[in-house]
Design a protein around this nucleic acid. Structure first.
Length: 349
DNA sequence: AAAGTACCCAACCGCAAGGAC
DNA sequence: GGTCCTTGCGGTTGGGTACTT
């Protein structure tokens, strides 16, 4: 048999993405929505027309248009394989992505989930709607793994949750037992698996614990300023405006402040569809923001937008339960971080 | 100041699952 | 039912940057 390569190896560009490539991709997705990645490399030649169409939104588009026209390769479409396009979108460009600076709360949640789910980064990422699996995976490999190792080596073993540590103290055993329990049940019946998940999470539904959300370490859900891809694109645009000094595709301010064109955006209730996205566009006022906001409206983006954090709500167990367990519920309505106050990982188990 | 080393992260690769034909 | 195609996932790598000597 043998699977054919996802694309011709000849003439396919690899390596870091350039700002113009990013914009082409975003423009394409604005028009067609995420998905059908196979068609992206061939169809992205349309992007200049799209940008023309959007030219009235902000003056900055004139510059973008001029820039794109100055790049001869633009009209030939993206010289990228579909896989690369999808990855770039999901890991970097899609709306609602928060980059860098993991909060303590997020850190703990990742540790919890890693203990429960193992290295199923996509599954873990689904509980952190504004983080990508790649981001979480990187963060785990570079920070958390070491941290946990240190803790265990330090004798405390505050968190026996590491999948590698395995041993640890009694708490680690409990965690392992819970994990095993949950997985066994998952294999037998989805309903019992749901119950197992409930058991494993063993949340205290009391209002006191619900109120104990660490407001200092994490912003209130309603006002969480998650960087949208408008910010991401704005950074790219910043890169354009500068002399091409650094490596292509690398944003000088990749983890730093947002540009002047992009203001902080509110969490967008993506599942509800349109309003918030366009609001974000008008707030940002930038060309890329308009492009991105329009992208967020695409109806095909259900799989993408379902990961996007929405407005917070009172951290009630019923909400958490729904969020976690209801297949039909759009996960974009509320992020787990919004409903699940986290304490010490060791307390968790 | 230069060289060496460690760290971080974006991107690639290969595999697997699911759907279409 | 079999084959091919597309998408998603997890592991790994390579290049850039920061830090140390």
């Amino acid at each position: 048999m043998g699977r054919p390569p996802c694309c011709d190896k000849v003439g396919v560009k690899k390596g870091p993405w350039t700002p113009e490539e990013d914009l082409m991709l975003v423009s394409y997705i604005q028009e067609h929505g995420p998905g059908n990645w196979r068609a992206v490399p061939t169809n992205t030649g349309e992007c200049v027309c799209l940008i023309d169409r959007a030219a009235g939104v902000a003056g900055g588009l004139q510059k973008i248009r001029a820039f794109l026209r100055s790049v001869t390769s633009v009209c030939a479409g993206l010289m990228r394989c579909s896989k690369s396009c999808r990855l770039r979108w999901t890991n970097y460009l899609r709306p609602g992505i928060k980059r860098g600076n993991f909060t303590d709360q997020e850190e703990k949640l990742i540790v919890h989930l890693q203990a429960l789910l193992g290295n199923r980064w996509a599954a873990i990422a689904s509980y952190l709607p504004e983080r990508t699996d790649n981001d979480i995976k990187n963060y785990w490999n570079t920070h958390l793994k070491k941290k946990l190792k240190k803790m265990q080596a330090g004798g405390g073993g505050e968190d026996g949750a590491s999948s590698e540590g395995g041993g640890g103290g009694g708490r680690g055993k409990v965690a392992a037992a819970l994990k095993g329990q949950w997985e066994r049940r998952l294999q037998t019946d989805i309903h019992t698996a749901r119950q197992a998940l409930r058991d494993a999470l063993s949340l205290d539904p009391s209002p006191t614990s619900a109120k104990s959300a660490p407001e200092a370490s994490a912003p209130p859900a309603g006002s969480a300023a998650y960087a949208s891809s408008a910010d991401n694109i704005a950074r790219l645009l910043q890169g354009w405006m500068r002399p091409a000094g650094g490596g292509a595709g690398k944003c000088p301010e990749a983890s730093g402040s947002t540009s002047t064109t992009a203001t902080t955006t509110q969490p967008q209730p993506q599942c509800s569809g349109d309003g918030a996205a366009s609001a974000s566009a008008s707030q940002s006022g930038g060309a890329a923001a308009a492009v991105v906001a329009a992208t967020a409206q695409t109806p095909e983006g259900s799989t993408e937008t379902s990961k996007i954090a929405g407005a917070g709500s009172a951290p009630a167990f019923s909400m958490l339960e729904s969020w976690l367990l209801d297949d039909g519920m759009c996960h974009g309505d509320v992020g787990l971080m919004d409903v699940m106050p986290l304490g010490d990982p060791s307390e968790f188990f």
